[in-house]
């Protein structure tokens, strides 16, 4: 009904992904901060996965929108 839910879901996770990825890159040298996460840059990794998920959702939403227009 009404809206294609994949669009807002895709948009939100793309934003989350971008925010976390950039934050992860900026803080990459901060060893103190990542000590608790076993010296893994968990912001960067989570950001990338979230970004891929958000991107996929957006891709499917936009493809469906294009098909409807045809």
């Amino acid at each position: 009904m009404g809206i294609d839910i994949r669009f807002p879901i895709g948009l939100m996770f793309t934003i989350f992904g971008l925010v976390l990825t950039i934050f992860g890159l900026v803080t990459n040298s901060n060893a103190e901060m990542y000590k608790r996460s076993l010296e893994i840059n968990i912001n960067l990794w989570t950001g990338l996965v979230t970004l891929i998920f958000g991107g996929l959702m957006l891709f499917f939403a936009l493809r469906a929108r294009k098909n409807r227009k045809k």
Binding site: L20, F23, G24, T27, M33, Y34, R36, S37, L38, I42, N43, T46
Partner: peptide, 8 residues
């Protein structure tokens, strides 16, 4: 709180 740094 134990594993996650700010951000995630």
């Amino acid at each position: 709180g134990y594993y996650f740094p700010t951000g995630v």
